[in-house]
Design a protein around this nucleic acid. Sequence first.
DNA 1: AATGAATGAGTATTCATTCAT
DNA 2: TATGAATGAATACTCATTCAT
Lengths: 190, 190, 190, 190
Amino acid sequence: MKLRDDKKAGQIFRSVLTLVKEKGLAGITMGEIAKEAGMATGTLYIYFKNKEELINNLFFECRKEALENYFVNYDESLPFKKGFSIVWHNILQFRIENFEEVVLMDQCYHSPFVNDCTVKLTKEMKKPLYKLIERGKKENFFKDVDDMTLLTFMIGSIHEGVKNAHYNRKPLNKAAIDAMFKMCWDGMKR
Amino acid sequence: MKLRDDKKAGQIFRSVLTLVKEKGLAGITMGEIAKEAGMATGTLYIYFKNKEELINNLFFECRKEALENYFVNYDESLPFKKGFSIVWHNILQFRIENFEEVVLMDQCYHSPFVNDCTVKLTKEMKKPLYKLIERGKKENFFKDVDDMTLLTFMIGSIHEGVKNAHYNRKPLNKAAIDAMFKMCWDGMKR
Amino acid sequence: MKLRDDKKAGQIFRSVLTLVKEKGLAGITMGEIAKEAGMATGTLYIYFKNKEELINNLFFECRKEALENYFVNYDESLPFKKGFSIVWHNILQFRIENFEEVVLMDQCYHSPFVNDCTVKLTKEMKKPLYKLIERGKKENFFKDVDDMTLLTFMIGSIHEGVKNAHYNRKPLNKAAIDAMFKMCWDGMKR
Amino acid sequence: MKLRDDKKAGQIFRSVLTLVKEKGLAGITMGEIAKEAGMATGTLYIYFKNKEELINNLFFECRKEALENYFVNYDESLPFKKGFSIVWHNILQFRIENFEEVVLMDQCYHSPFVNDCTVKLTKEMKKPLYKLIERGKKENFFKDVDDMTLLTFMIGSIHEGVKNAHYNRKPLNKAAIDAMFKMCWDGMKR
DNA sequence: AATGAATGAGTATTCATTCAT
DNA sequence: TATGAATGAATACTCATTCAT
């Protein structure tokens, strides 16, 4: 008997990401997804109940993967600035390397496909980032500003930078990245 | 498109903005736009050749309106920091007050509706912002970083902040805005 | 402005009936209905929300038309047997001439298209037939059997006869019809 | 079709009957049949070449089973009215007890699944009923009406009665059955 | 033989666009 | 100009059938 292939869902996800980057969430059809994934349309429906569920799952998966990557090599025992730098660079790196995911997630807000439930779930995942910010404040590195504002500023410094580099086709080099980090740090520091 | 200054075109634009915020660019139909605007579908085609042109025009219009607002009350004769602050706050204010436009513009990247031509036109409009950055550098306020990186950082500090405030339903108060501006300034300043 | 054409719904109904007789309710597609009716598929959806509503409305319409025909020329002042005979022959005639409707209604029971609500509505319409039966009993023509059993017997004598004639391609002639009526009357009479 | 007498084929038949009564022939899928029968879809195709053959076989089987039951306990040596009564009651009893089969057979006319060949085969099986009618006429019990009309009347008296009882959820009791038989007999008798 | 995943043609429905009024 | 009915291509989704295990 042929059993459900665990790789298939991943293949499907990858195809959607490719297509979203090319033509946006708006213009994607199930037929195109299947074609890009090298399978029949019907097969998509074995792995996902419908388009909404497919996109939701992908959105959730992307968010999860992103946040999992953020803390690679981070260790609470490291001095704060070093640790913060690692996380900041992880986020930047992830967004550069996985720009397709970034595009998808951006497009998913306000989209009819992503439901509130999925949005809520992804919020939960942000907690480690808040912990990092709190540590920065407790160790007196950061300004006395509320956590959310600080985190948003940090994310913004990366987010906009990566988008810009991509759309202007100017890959970020070491110098630009260093400058960006310095600006972020200087902005946040007390 | 017939009469650009006709009230009807404006009504149509407004309807699209409302709907995009509600359900994203992906999920909007010409029928819904017409209904929201209180007119018949056919009427849309008197003002716009087709959906693509409608969205493109709106995108262009939003971008233009945005950039026009950015330099209100700005005057080159003002001391730099004062001038920069005015522009920064103008941008923030505009994005808060016209969040629908922000959403539309975000969704338009990667959308099959917005064509390269429109994207190019809007780039042209960014020039005054570059001039501002250059002045900041010439007058030795800003770090010695390339203009685009600085501008992107500035925009990012605002953009992400507004989005965050909106999605978390926490309107930005004076204190938060001051903190945001300070972070931005400290980040950019030499 | 082009206004909704009242004839269209009728045209659509007629097309469905033709097709149901040909291939049964099971095998009919919206595309075929549209083609048979000489219009585009989309047009069907201007007049009916979806397939279910289309079939339901048709079912209801058929039932109504049928019952309206049953009492043509009937008059309470006529002697009972004469009146009963008129109704009986009306029913027979209607079922012969509108065999397509008969087929549709038969197929609609147990079909996923016809919902309980519609079934209930049509029951309401049977009341005049019950009144006829009651009169027959009150005037001592009929056996002392409950109304429903009598009515069912009457209907059965016609229903099965018409179906049989149709499927065996033996149109009912005067002699056969007279025989059928006599059997029905003799069966019911005291 | 492989093994007619295998239990599996029977299970499949039973499942179809259950589903047809629930949702009509139109709305049934091979997947549902398999599920209801507690087996995989693929398995259905071991026993039947395709859906059409499955339904045709079932239709044929139902018809056969029905007609086999009609003459249980009937014996030509019995006095005619007694014999006729036995057959009449057998038919009634069968239709009450096997209402699902009745529904299936009704729905099969006009269905794209049941082909002419199957219809023809079932006609063949009606012969014993015609013989019964002929005997009734030869022994001067019945009206001088052609056989088919008499048989149809007899069947109609039962058919409609059973359907009605079922749909109105009023099981037929002894009194009602006696009344129905009397009406049928009185109608047919000379 | 039995399974259920895979297939892809087919179906209901939607929706941008046109057109008659 | 304005309307909204009509169109039919396009899309999400289904389902009979096949096939690898």
